[in-house]
């Protein structure tokens, strides 16, 4: 299967952002993190597409929408290998790199059931202590949440 035939499965957009190489099981997490369920733009997505590198993948295309770097970096938590293409007039004009931020608020839950963020209505806050292994230190209980137990806040 060539790249071209794969692209056809999610129809092209004129202007906007295409996010490719999302692990299929992270699709809804990405939608959630970027708040795509709350915006009015036209969005098309495809999931469970075959990928040469990562099993099943998903693609999201958002018309007339461009993301701040700080905003887009958040998806590194659930889709670290995702690729972002900025599209203008059907052409990819820029590739945006996704980088894990040093710290962030909300987005994921603290793994510790005895943490205040899981008991009262407190927004989670983490420092990324290991970018490679994806280790997040909770600002409150100081416990580590790692890539194996990341759960996105609903």
């Amino acid at each position: 299967m060539t790249k071209d035939t794969k692209e056809l499965r999610v129809s092209a957009i004129k202007n906007g952002t295409a996010i490719d190489h999302i692990p299929a099981d992270s699709l809804f997490n990405v939608i959630n993190i970027l708040g795509l369920d709350k915006i009015q733009n036209t969005i098309t997505f495809g999931t469970n597409l075959d990928s040469q590198t990562q099993g099943k993948k998903a693609i999201i295309k958002i018309s007339e929408k461009y993301f701040e770097k700080s905003e887009i970096n958040k998806i590194a938590l659930v889709a670290p290998n995702a690729k972002l293409n900025i599209i203008k007039d059907y052409e990819v004009v820029q590739k945006q790199i996704i980088e894990l931020p040093d710290s962030f608020q909300g987005i994921v839950k603290c793994v510790n059931p005895k943490c205040i963020t899981n008991v009262e209505n407190v927004k989670t806050k983490f420092t990324v202590v290991d970018k490679k292994e994806l280790k997040l230190k909770c600002h409150y209980c100081e416990k580590i949440t790692n890539k194996n137990n990341i759960e996105v806040v609903k």
């Binding site: 005895k114 943490c115 600002h139 409150y140 100081e142």
Partner: peptide, 9 residues
């Protein structure tokens, strides 16, 4: 407090 992180909060 028995809950972890409660004092920081």
């Amino acid at each position: 407090h028995p809950i972890e992180g409660s004092a920081r909060y």
